[in-house]
Design a binder for these strands. Structure first.
Lengths: 170, 170
DNA sequence: CTGACTGGTCTGGTCACGAGACCAGTATGA
DNA sequence: TCATACTGGTCTCGTGACCAGACCAGTCAG
């Protein structure tokens, strides 16, 4: 769909935001970016997304200034820009909403403040420091519990152990 | 798509949430619910959405426990449940993100705390009270500025003046 | 030079969406 | 009492997005 997904006449910034970030897969791609995924092939393996759609979404996100595309070594890196990082509160609150109100057959991921080790509360605040830490200062880990059908790609494997957000992954 | 939008293997509550709330139009429907829209016909007039899709989205939201469907007088009312209201932080933060990082040719909507009259900050907090007010205690208004192509349905007309969130609209 | 790896493009079938015609139940008014 | 309008839908058909998988081009290692 690219830009102008049919929400033009809404005259509303929620609609504008959804033109960039509201398409199928986009928020999951960004979630992976926060986890530290940077390469085309890793997105492909971790999300069950088709190549064509992944290409299109990455292009849209780069065009919108949410990701930066940077050739590197053998390959290409996609990195969150400041605008991209600013989406963290949205992603976190939607995740927490799902955890609270929707049934799921898998353990949630927990975010903790790297400096003091406390788990964040529902609003993303560190209960010890009282502040909302920067995403780069968070560690994700999987809560205890059995996942019925765990994935087995390289990204999923790294994410079984605690991992510092935004640091390169596999 | 209904439930099971193809994100099943993600084992992640963000994906679960997106199965309910991540399809085209859904968040805009919910935005309208927060504004106080309750009737099929008003959603239809305010969003440029097709009848079939609107029907399907409302059904999905009711099935997921986000909206409640209640026959009333002549017609039917769709009301936010507690789970539905809990989506406000997500919608607000995404809106604010769009306002800050995306170009738009229209004035933003501003939310203020009804009790003390202060405009909310970026995190949805009332700078005077220091707390995050309940959505029901907010008033929306349109910031000053010209909208290039304003809408002219009944809902849009009411929303030109300040309006208490969640109170019935047209 | 060859083979493997990465980041793609292209294609063909399927499924979701948009527009608009149609319809059923309930009030309302003459 | 019957015609009319209003509300909340359903149905159909054409178009476009998505998925799976084949294919491809550039680059680096051996």
């Amino acid at each position: 769909m690219g830009l102008g997904t049919g929400y033009e006449r809404q005259g509303c910034f929620l609609a504008r935001a959804l033109e960039v970030v509201g398409e199928r897969w986009t928020l999951l791609i960004l979630r992976d970016c926060f986890y530290g995924v940077r390469h085309f092939g890793d997105f492909l393996a971790h999300l069950d997304i088709s190549r064509g759609v992944l290409t299109e979404r990455l292009d849209t996100l780069v065009a919108a200034g949410v990701l930066e595309r940077r050739p590197q070594g053998r390959g290409v890196e996609y990195l969150l820009t400041d605008a991209g990082r600013a989406l963290w509160p949205t992603i976190h609150s939607l995740s927490k909403w799902g955890e609270k109100y929707l049934p799921g057959h898998h353990p949630p991921r927990v975010f903790s403040h790297a400096q003091c080790g406390s788990d964040l509360d529902e609003d993303g605040r560190c209960p010890t420091c009282g502040l909302v830490p920067d995403v780069a200062d968070l560690v994700v880990r999987l809560a205890k519990g059995r996942n019925a059908t765990p994935r087995d790609d390289p990204v999923a494997q790294v994410l079984r152990r605690p991992h510092r957000m935004l640091t390169p992954l596999p």
